[in-house]
Design a protein around this nucleic acid. Structure first.
Lengths: 109, 109
DNA sequence: GTTATATACAACCAAATGGTTGTACATTCT
DNA sequence: AGAATGTACAACCATTTGGTTGTATATAAC
């Protein structure tokens, strides 16, 4: 997984509207216009948010008639979660390495 | 946890350099100048990256002599991970609700 | 005390972001 | 066929982002 790809995932998640789109399309698919109805902004703005999510792989778009159906991809979210878990793992590894020498939370400086 | 706060956390993580700073300061604290030595950019640029991480609560800064010691906060990372886990939970809830009626992955359209 | 190091902070700049409106095209409905 | 709906996409605009340089200040080293 490239750095650019990770950038895209986290940047896509760094917007309230986009997180909400993910929530809605995880709970059940929706057309772009159905999504647009939910927010106080233009259709084009919502269209752009969906595009950002799609670029990040967090969402897929399938044509159905004249509509475009948006569906969230739980796997990509799981991947993002995995990245954070990895970071936390580093922290744990640090203390494992120190073998709890500094286990007291009040570290003398 | 406010939307603005969540925005800050994910935006802070949406940059390769900042993710690397988190990694390094999880594995062991570092001064801002020590961090700056690691990257091909100015001290001021690194200083700004640290500030973004601090605003997001991913990192703390403590003065030690003339230095400022940067330390990552694993709890805040865990919180971010929790948010993603929550999203995934919605997806699972969806299928729990449907009681596996659509359990076949190839959904006919 | 002077010099070197570490930081803070302002001003500036190019590029990206998040929004808008307008136009064009495809599909569906009547 | 004609009208309405859903989407695509371009052009534009204000603000934010990620970088720079320059200047000032605090601490440390000699």
């Amino acid at each position: 997984m490239s750095d650019a790809e990770i950038d895209r995932i986290f940047r896509a998640l760094a917007d309230r509207t986009r997180r909400d789109i993910v929530r809605r399309t995880l709970g059940g698919e929706a057309s772009v216009s159905a999504l647009a109805d939910e927010y106080d902004m233009s259709f084009a703005a919502v269209q752009k948010h969906v595009a950002v999510l799609k670029e990040a792989g967090l969402v897929t778009k399938h044509p159905r008639g004249r509509e475009r159906i948006v569906r969230a991809d739980p796997d990509q979210i799981a991947r993002a979660r995995g990245l954070l878990a990895q970071l936390e793992g580093l922290w744990r590894a640090r203390f494992d390495q120190l073998d709890h020498v500094l286990s007291d939370p009040i570290t003398p400086e």
